[in-house]
Amino acid sequence: MQEEYRRAAELISSADALLVCAGAGMGVDSGLPDFRGDEGFWRAYPPYARLGLRFVELADPEHFAADPELAWGFYGHRLNLYRETEPHAGFTVLRKWGENKPGGVCVFTSNVDGQFQRAGFTDVAEVHGSIHHLQCLAHCGVGIWPADDVVVDVDPDTMRARPPLPSCPRCGSLARPNILMFGDYDWLEHRSRRQLDAFTEWRRRNRSLVVVELGAGLAVPTVRRQAELASAATGALVRINPREPQVRHGRGVSLPVGALEALTTLDELVN
Rank of each mutant, 00 (worst) to 15 (best):
E57N: 07
G52Q: 03
D34R: 02
G40H: 03
A66S: 15
D67E: 14
F55R: 00
A59Y: 08
Y45G: 04
V56Q: 15
P47H: 07
G37R: 10
R43A: 13
G52N: 08
E39V: 13
E69A: 14
L32Q: 00
D60T: 07
L53A: 08
R36C: 01
F64H: 04
D38C: 05
D34M: 06
F64R: 03
D67R: 14
H63C: 10
D34L: 00
G52V: 06
L53T: 02
F55Q: 12
Y48C: 13
E39I: 02
E57I: 02
F64I: 02
P68G: 11
V56N: 15
R43C: 11
E57C: 07
P61Y: 11
G52A: 12
A59T: 05
R36G: 10
R54L: 09
D60V: 06
W42T: 09
W42M: 12
A65T: 05
L58G: 10
G52M: 03
Y45C: 01
P68A: 09
P46R: 08
L53H: 03
D60L: 15
P68N: 04
F55L: 10
L58W: 01
L53F: 05
L51P: 06
A65N: 05
F55E: 04
L58Q: 07
H63P: 06
R50G: 15
R36W: 09
D34W: 00
F64N: 10
G37K: 04
E57R: 12
Y45T: 01
G37C: 06
R50F: 06
P46W: 12
G52E: 02
R36N: 01
R43S: 15
P61E: 12
G31H: 04
R54V: 05
D60A: 10
A66W: 07
L32A: 00
W42D: 15
G40V: 01
L32T: 00
A44M: 10
E62H: 14
R54K: 14
F64P: 08
G40E: 11
E39Y: 12
F35T: 02
G52H: 13
V56I: 13
D60P: 08
